[in-house]
Each structure stands twice: as structure tokens, then as C-alpha cells.
């Protein structure tokens, strides 16, 4: 194990996969000369050259589609879309092509593609640059959607995504890039579609993914001091969704709080709550509650932004309310 930042773990993984398989190439805006908007690809153009690291013009629909076409031919493109907000320009290619080709070709064609893109608010980037749109993609059969919270998973899941034969959307998070954690040395391939219990507990289950899983973990650790034993489930993958792990945890604790950075209505938490009521209904001692973003285009002004986004305070409050049986 080595302590690395989430950013470094992603970077090192891209580098290792570029070394391992010459069919792997990177494509995206500002990833080469500029070394990436968030510096995930720093140094890779210098090391691997422009044949492996492609700086694309601002043309998300075009270059994402190009990557899908290249993947149909057996290459393994890793697309960087600067933030998930800009993926909306490419969503037609992702949803109508990448997710569909295997099916409409009757299995003749596959799309071994990875799209890496960060979501997340909280940086005062305002309404169009702070969105959490992963549920849009998680809704679509044919795609896989991964959302690592830990630095180890940044490596393990990205490696798995690149080696997977299907289109994978890797949701990264602006707020996690600088976080640090232990990362296994050498080959580390995580299993796609398995949730992880980040902290075992007896009294309540807090479920999250990406940044929200880290918030959940922080809250659970603090509550420990008050004698509350919270279990934290990190989804790691939104599609496929590990319903067994979720339901097993709630059957044990009988209470669940979901933490999500997206908007409440029709968000990921809605799917989780539905899963829990179906898979653990008889075990529940309190309604399943969700802590999600307020339903507004995220305002720029700091006090409004803070109020609109889920934080540890809100999670703590809802956990306590749920334990009281509200």
C-alpha cells in the first residue's frame, strides 16, 4: 500500500494501462499540452506522445463519437470529458450509440470505451458547471456507471473500466481529487458492480457514493463518539447496482439514510429507497430518508450554494432523526 491522492491514483492507472496495452489511448480537451484541466493526465503526452494522447478541439459530441467508433474497431479509448456538465453535448453519442451498439448489432459489435468525467458542486462554479447528472447515465441499460469514493477504488475501478468490454462512465469528483488514501501497489483490479462496506455498524446504514460516501464515513466516525454505530455502504457502482449488499446491510441495521449529491426528485436515492423497501421492508424500523441537493439550479452566491448542498451537518441531523424513529 502507498498513500496517494485520488488524482495521483487515476494518473498512475492511466499510465500503467497505456504501458500495458497499446490499444489504449486517451482523448479529450486540454489533456495533452495543458496536462488536463485537473491535471490527471500530467506528463502523459510527454511520455507516450501524441499517438496515444490526443488533444481534441472543443467538440464533445464529435470526439466522444470518434472514440465510440474507434472502440467498435477494437481500440480502447479513454475519453476525458472536462466535467460531466459538458457530457450533455455528447449524450446522444453516449446514449444512442455507445449504449446501444451491442444490442442493435445482435452482439456483433462491442464498445470497450471509458468516459472519465468529474461531477460535483461546491466550488462556486454556479448552475451550469456544478451538476451531478450520473443518474441520467445510470438510467441507461448498456452503460456501466462507476463512482469511486476512495483512492484505492480510483485505481481499481479505473483499471477494471479500461479492461472491460463495455462502455463505462467513470464518475470522478472535483471535491475528491485532492483527497488522500491508501492504494494497493501493483496490479489492482476492482470487481465492477460490488458495493463496499466502508465501516461496519449495527444501528443504521448510511449509503453514499463518490463524495457522499466520504461524507457518510466522516459522519459515521463522529457518531461513534456518541455511541451510535452506523454502517457505511459505498456503492462504487451505480449500474450495475449491488442491491444485495445494500439490502443485507439494512436488514441488519433496520434503518437507512441515503446521501447523494444530485437533486432529490428522480435521483439515485429514489432507486435506492425503492430497492430497500422491496428488499428489506419487513426489517425497517423507520422510513428511509434521503439527504440530497436542494432542487434549484445551483446559485453562485456562497451562502446559497452552501445551503443547497448536502453536508455532514444535514446527514448527522437526518441520521439522528431516523434513529429517533421519525
Amino acid at each position: 500500500m502507498t498513500v496517494l491522492s485520488y488524482r495521483q491514483a487515476l494518473h498512475d492507472t492511466l499510465r500503467a494501462e497505456l504501458q500495458r496495452d497499446e490499444n489504449v489511448f486517451l482523448i479529450g480537451e486540454e489533456i495533452g499540452v495543458f496536462e488536463g484541466s485537473y491535471k490527471i493526465t500530467a506528463g502523459l503526452l510527454a511520455e507516450f506522445g501524441p499517438h496515444r494522447v490526443w488533444d481534441a478541439p472543443i467538440a464533445e459530441e464529435g470526439f466522444t463519437g470518434v472514440a465510440i467508433g474507434a472502440a467498435m474497431m477494437g481500440l480502447r479509448p479513454v475519453v476525458e470529458i472536462m466535467t460531466i456538465n459538458f457530457s450533455l453535448l455528447a449524450i446522444d453519442q453516449i446514449v444512442n450509440n455507445a449504449a446501444k451498439l451491442r444490442s442493435v448489432s445482435g452482439g456483433q459489435v462491442s464498445v470497450p470505451l471509458v468516459i472519465r468525467t468529474p461531477g460535483g458542486g461546491g466550488q462556486q462554479l454556479s448552475a451550469t458547471h456544478s451538476q451531478n447528472l450520473e443518474a441520467w447515465y445510470a438510467h441507461v441499460p448498456g452503460l456501466k456507471v462507476l463512482a469511486p469514493a476512495t483512492c484505492a477504488d480510483a485505481k481499481g475501478l479505473l483499471t477494471a473500466a479500461i479492461r472491460d468490454d463495455d462502455p463505462v462512465l467513470m464518475l470522478e469528483n472535483l471535491a475528491l481529487y485532492n483527497t488522500k488514501g491508501e492504494v494497493p501497489d501493483g496490479e489492482h483490479v476492482a470487481e465492477i458492480g460490488r458495493a463496499a462496506v466502508l465501516k461496519p455498524g449495527r444501528d443504521i446504514t448510511i449509503i453514499g457514493y463518490s463524495r457522499a460516501a466520504i461524507v457518510a464515513l466522516d459522519v459515521a466516525r463522529k457518531l461513534e463518539g456518541d455511541g451510535i454505530s452506523a454502517e457505511v455502504v459505498d456503492l462504487r457502482s451505480l449500474r450495475p447496482l449491488d442491491r444485495d449488499t445494500i439490502c443485507a446491510s439494512v436488514r441488519k441495521t433496520s434503518r437507512a439514510v441515503i446521501v447523494e449529491d444530485d437533486w432529490l426528485s428522480y435521483g439515485t436515492g429514489a432507486e435506492l429507497a425503492a430497492t430497500i423497501q422491496e428488499g428489506a421492508f419487513d426489517y425497517l424500523d423507520a422510513p428511509v430518508r434521503r439527504v440530497a441537493a436542494a432542487e434549484v439550479p445551483l446559485p453562485y452566491a456562497k451562502p446559497l450554494e452552501i445551503a443547497a448542498l448536502p453536508d455532514a451537518g444535514a446527514v448527522t441531523r437526518v441520521v439522528r432523526e431516523t434513529l429517533r424513529g421519525h
Partner: peptide, 22 residues
Amino acid sequence: VSALFDCVYASPPPGMYRGLPG
């Protein structure tokens, strides 16, 4: 914070959810 839900709709629907996180 009371202004958080202003300016989202021109004619805000009566039942619009105005919850803060949690």
C-alpha cells in the same frame, strides 16, 4: 437562504418541493 428557491420558475407550481438537504 430564504431566497434559495427564488427565480427558478416564472410561475412557481404550488406544490413545488422546497426542501433543504435532508
